[in-house]
Protein backbone atom coordinates (compact mmCIF):
# COMPACT_ATOMS: atom_id res chain seq x y z
CA UNK A 1 0.00 0.00 0.00
CA UNK A 2 1.35 3.37 -1.05
CA UNK A 3 -0.38 5.37 1.73
CA UNK A 4 -0.30 3.98 5.23
CA UNK A 5 -0.79 5.03 8.80
CA UNK A 6 1.14 2.68 11.02
CA UNK A 7 2.16 2.10 14.60
CA UNK A 8 5.32 0.11 13.94
CA UNK A 9 8.52 1.45 12.46
CA UNK A 10 8.96 1.75 8.71
CA UNK A 11 10.60 -0.91 6.64
CA UNK A 12 12.50 1.52 4.42
CA UNK A 13 13.85 -1.20 2.14
CA UNK A 14 10.28 -2.35 1.46
CA UNK A 15 9.24 1.24 0.77
CA UNK A 16 12.06 1.79 -1.73
CA UNK A 17 11.29 -1.51 -3.40
CA UNK A 18 7.63 -0.65 -3.83
CA UNK A 19 8.35 2.52 -5.88
CA UNK A 20 11.20 0.96 -7.90
CA UNK A 21 11.00 -0.21 -11.49
CA UNK A 22 13.42 -0.57 -14.42
CA UNK A 23 12.35 2.93 -15.59
CA UNK A 24 13.53 4.59 -12.38
CA UNK A 25 16.84 6.46 -12.45
CA UNK A 26 16.58 8.20 -9.09
CA UNK A 27 14.82 7.91 -5.74
CA UNK A 28 14.44 10.71 -3.18
CA UNK A 29 13.57 9.91 0.43
CA UNK A 30 12.33 12.24 3.13
CA UNK A 31 12.38 10.72 6.59
CA UNK A 32 10.99 12.76 9.50
CA UNK A 33 12.36 12.15 13.01
CA UNK A 34 11.41 13.04 16.58
CA UNK A 35 13.73 15.88 17.63
CA UNK A 36 14.76 16.51 21.25
CA UNK A 37 13.85 20.22 21.19
CA UNK A 38 10.79 22.28 20.25
CA UNK A 39 9.98 25.98 20.82
CA UNK A 40 13.05 26.10 23.13
CA UNK A 41 11.81 23.24 25.32
CA UNK A 42 13.38 19.86 25.88
CA UNK A 43 11.13 17.22 24.29
CA UNK A 44 10.80 13.84 26.02
CA UNK A 45 8.49 12.17 23.52
CA UNK A 46 5.71 12.79 20.99
CA UNK A 47 2.23 11.32 20.91
CA UNK A 48 0.53 11.40 17.52
CA UNK A 49 -3.25 11.22 17.24
CA UNK A 50 -4.94 10.73 13.87
CA UNK A 51 -8.38 10.79 12.30
CA UNK A 52 -7.40 7.49 10.78
CA UNK A 53 -9.84 7.02 7.89
CA UNK A 54 -9.54 10.60 6.74
CA UNK A 55 -5.76 10.71 7.21
CA UNK A 56 -5.26 7.77 4.86
CA UNK A 57 -7.81 9.18 2.37
CA UNK A 58 -6.13 12.60 2.42
CA UNK A 59 -2.69 11.01 1.91
CA UNK A 60 -4.13 9.15 -1.09
CA UNK A 61 -5.51 12.40 -2.51
CA UNK A 62 -2.10 14.11 -2.06
CA UNK A 63 -0.37 11.14 -3.70
CA UNK A 64 -2.71 11.30 -6.73
CA UNK A 65 -2.16 15.05 -7.02
CA UNK A 66 1.63 14.55 -6.87
CA UNK A 67 1.45 11.88 -9.60
CA UNK A 68 -0.40 14.36 -11.84
CA UNK A 69 1.68 17.41 -10.96
CA UNK A 70 5.16 15.92 -11.41
CA UNK A 71 6.49 13.54 -14.10
CA UNK A 72 7.46 10.94 -11.50
CA UNK A 73 7.20 7.18 -11.72
CA UNK A 74 5.77 6.61 -8.24
CA UNK A 75 5.54 8.03 -4.73
CA UNK A 76 4.56 6.69 -1.33
CA UNK A 77 3.53 8.34 1.93
CA UNK A 78 3.71 6.50 5.23
CA UNK A 79 2.98 8.18 8.56
CA UNK A 80 3.30 6.79 12.07
CA UNK A 81 1.00 7.38 15.03
CA UNK A 82 0.99 6.64 18.76
CA UNK A 83 3.87 7.29 21.17
CA UNK A 84 7.26 7.98 19.63
CA UNK A 85 10.56 8.46 21.44
CA UNK A 86 13.39 10.85 20.50
CA UNK A 87 15.14 9.68 17.35
CA UNK A 88 12.26 7.56 16.11
CA UNK A 89 10.96 7.90 12.54
CA UNK A 90 7.69 9.82 12.08
CA UNK A 91 7.03 10.16 8.37
CA UNK A 92 8.42 8.64 5.21
CA UNK A 93 8.01 10.00 1.69
CA UNK A 94 9.70 8.11 -1.13
CA UNK A 95 9.53 9.47 -4.68
CA UNK A 96 10.94 7.77 -7.74
CA UNK A 97 11.55 9.26 -11.17
CA UNK A 98 13.44 8.75 -14.37
CA UNK A 99 15.59 11.67 -13.22
CA UNK A 100 16.40 13.21 -9.85
CA UNK A 101 14.85 16.64 -10.42
CA UNK A 102 11.20 15.56 -10.52
CA UNK A 103 11.73 13.16 -7.63
CA UNK A 104 13.20 15.96 -5.44
CA UNK A 105 10.40 18.37 -6.44
CA UNK A 106 7.63 15.83 -5.78
CA UNK A 107 9.10 14.77 -2.45
CA UNK A 108 9.36 18.37 -1.18
CA UNK A 109 5.86 19.30 -2.39
CA UNK A 110 4.34 16.18 -0.85
CA UNK A 111 5.82 16.61 2.63
CA UNK A 112 4.61 20.24 2.67
CA UNK A 113 1.07 19.17 1.65
CA UNK A 114 1.00 16.38 4.26
CA UNK A 115 1.97 18.82 7.01
CA UNK A 116 -0.73 21.24 5.90
CA UNK A 117 -3.61 18.83 5.23
CA UNK A 118 -3.43 15.36 6.77
CA UNK A 119 -5.48 15.18 10.01
CA UNK A 120 -2.76 14.11 12.42
CA UNK A 121 -1.92 16.04 15.58
CA UNK A 122 1.10 15.86 17.81
CA UNK A 123 1.22 16.19 21.53
CA UNK A 124 4.67 17.13 22.80
CA UNK A 125 5.70 15.88 26.21
CA UNK A 126 8.45 18.28 27.38
CA UNK A 127 10.29 19.09 30.59
CA UNK A 128 7.97 22.13 30.90
CA UNK A 129 4.71 20.20 30.51
CA UNK A 130 2.63 18.66 27.75
CA UNK A 131 1.47 20.67 24.74
CA UNK A 132 -0.85 20.18 21.78
CA UNK A 133 0.73 21.41 18.58
CA UNK A 134 -1.76 23.09 16.24
CA UNK A 135 -0.09 24.35 13.08
CA UNK A 136 2.56 26.77 14.39
CA UNK A 137 0.85 27.12 17.76
CA UNK A 138 1.75 25.33 20.97
CA UNK A 139 -1.08 24.98 23.51
CA UNK A 140 -0.35 23.84 27.06
CA UNK A 141 -2.35 20.90 28.44
CA UNK A 142 -0.71 20.17 31.79
Amino acid sequence: MKCRLLKDNFNIAEAINSVSSPKVGGIVIFLGKVRNESHGKKVKKLIYEAYEEMAVAEMERIREEAMKKFPIEDILIWHRYGELEIGEDTILIVASGKHRREAFDACRWTIDEVKRRVPVWKKEVTDEGTFWIEGEKQIKIS
Partner: peptide, 28 residues
Protein backbone atom coordinates in the same frame (compact mmCIF):
# COMPACT_ATOMS: atom_id res chain seq x y z
CA UNK B 1 -14.62 17.67 7.26
CA UNK B 2 -17.68 15.91 5.91
CA UNK B 3 -17.45 12.17 5.37
CA UNK B 4 -13.66 12.31 5.47
CA UNK B 5 -13.12 15.31 3.17
CA UNK B 6 -12.52 18.96 3.98
CA UNK B 7 -15.61 21.10 3.39
CA UNK B 8 -16.32 24.79 3.34
CA UNK B 9 -18.61 26.36 5.93
CA UNK B 10 -21.12 27.02 3.11
CA UNK B 11 -21.54 23.34 2.20
CA UNK B 12 -24.93 21.73 2.79
CA UNK B 13 -25.34 18.67 4.99
CA UNK B 14 -27.44 15.55 4.38
CA UNK B 15 -28.99 12.96 6.65
CA UNK B 16 -26.36 10.53 7.95
CA UNK B 17 -23.36 12.77 7.22
CA UNK B 18 -20.35 12.45 9.50
CA UNK B 19 -18.92 15.85 10.30
CA UNK B 20 -15.59 16.16 12.08
CA UNK B 21 -14.28 19.22 13.91
CA UNK B 22 -10.59 19.54 14.52
CA UNK B 23 -7.80 22.06 15.11
CA UNK B 24 -5.03 22.90 12.61
CA UNK B 25 -3.07 19.74 11.90
CA UNK B 26 0.52 19.07 12.97
CA UNK B 27 1.64 15.81 11.41
CA UNK B 28 4.91 15.11 9.63
Amino acid sequence: SKNGRYVSFDDHLSDGDVVALFPPVSGG
